[in-house]
Design a protein around this nucleic acid. Structure first.
Lengths: 221, 221
DNA sequence: TGACTTAGTGTAAATTTTACAATATAATCC
DNA sequence: GGATTATATTGTAAAATTTACACTAAGTCA
């Protein structure tokens, strides 16, 4: 930006879920310059009557056609050259879909929207590689001291799926019996009574979150 | 802001220490409108050649006359009406002084600067009551899963001081023997060999941080 | 129906956490 | 300088949690 010119204020949104044994992020393909055809996190400029959280919610609607999600502010990116068109600062949010994930349909700002393996994406528009990397790190950190796993999993999930989420994001294996004992002792999930059938082997009990929100796990009990 | 007008970008800084058995925040008194005579967190508009972290470091220099500190981004505040003069969004940082705390001298933007009990301040300019409250909450949360205590304490401190920091910020008492056992077992502090003398009673061993930075305390070891 | 795949479970040892009280060392006050 | 006061420092036994570890159960698939 020129001296004394104000930067644009924007928000970029990392929409995440754990599915197909991956941490997946929902990316959109840009139609317009400066990166036509490139993938990016959905984003938008802040509007005059919104705060950042509202802007993030609007971006969620634009990118998915859906409403229900939980949002969490992550970080504000402000490097002077992070946007080649003009100076802009972007406040990144994470979003966790609550409603029907399979009906996502981006608005016509975008060419396409879809789920990708968050660990393998690069070459995104703007500084979105960096935003994605920091947001992934934040998710991994939060797995250690919050119940963020409940937001990444679908409404109903097996304990094996939950364990795979931890193992993939923390990049380590965990003992199956000890993991189950620990999660069950926290009383954050409850069995639905339904079984996940049609897999290759023995059906697994489906669980659901007791309370589908992110809570701190205390150090001193 | 008017439609299509860009907001100002700013940063506000919560400078913290634990001293005199309190979590203290360094506040400045404003000379100019719109809040002459009111206390506030030190802050400034983002300049064209800076990112937010650099702006926060500049604000630290302006407010204290000192250089050495550690910074941590906290949250970006963006309510449309948070600044009565014009729309602005502010990215709040926490700062932890590293150098000589007793030589703080604010630049002439400010009338006065001094340390206050962070738990008791209200009536600050702008939305700084809210920024301060959220930042205090963040510090309390981080005491539970990071070594942020090392940044709040002076270079040399007693284990009793450290325990008081936890007790004040977490608003609960902790057993003295168990606290010391736990902290020492973490191997994040080491005795200096020097004693704190001149108190009312038996001198206490002074400790220092092994590594004066904020690190995560892992959930799964 | 036999082979394969994933779900689900228990226990003993080690470690950590918790609850709890007496002694040590200085300053202060007569 | 002796008594009093205030805070620092330390250990242990019980409880709880964590860890390491391997087999059976219940489906699918060829």
């Amino acid at each position: 930006m020129e001296k004394n010119e104000k930067p644009y204020a924007a928000t970029d949104l990392g929409i995440f879920r754990f599915a197909e044994n991956m941490l997946q992020v929902y990316l959109v393909r840009l139609k317009m310059s400066p990166f036509p055809g490139k993938y990016s996190l959905p984003g938008a400029l802040l509007q005059y009557d919104e705060d950042m959280a509202q802007a993030a919610e609007r971006v969620y609607r634009e990118a998915t056609g859906q409403e229900a999600a939980l949002f969490e502010q992550v970080y504000t990116f402000s490097a002077p050259n992070r946007d080649i068109r003009h100076r802009s600062i972007s406040t990144a949010y994470m979003a966790f879909p609550q409603g029907d994930i399979d009906d996502f349909r981006p608005c016509d700002k975008y060419d396409f929207g879809g789920w990708f393996n968050a660990a393998e994406m690069s070459g995104l528009a703007y500084d979105h590689d960096e935003i994605l990397a920091l947001t992934r790190d934040r998710i991994a950190a939060k797995l250690n001291y919050t119940t963020i796993a409940l937001l990444l999993l679908p409404k109903e999930f097996t304990l094996t799926e939950m364990q795979r989420l931890y193992e993939h994001c923390l990049e380590r294996t965990l003992d199956k019996r000890n993991f189950r004992k620990k999660i069950l002792s926290m009383e954050i999930v409850t069995p639905t009574g339904k079984m996940l059938r049609g897999q290759k082997a023995r059906p697994a009990m489906l669980y659901q979150a007791v309370d589908r929100k992110m809570e701190m796990i205390p150090l001193f009990r």
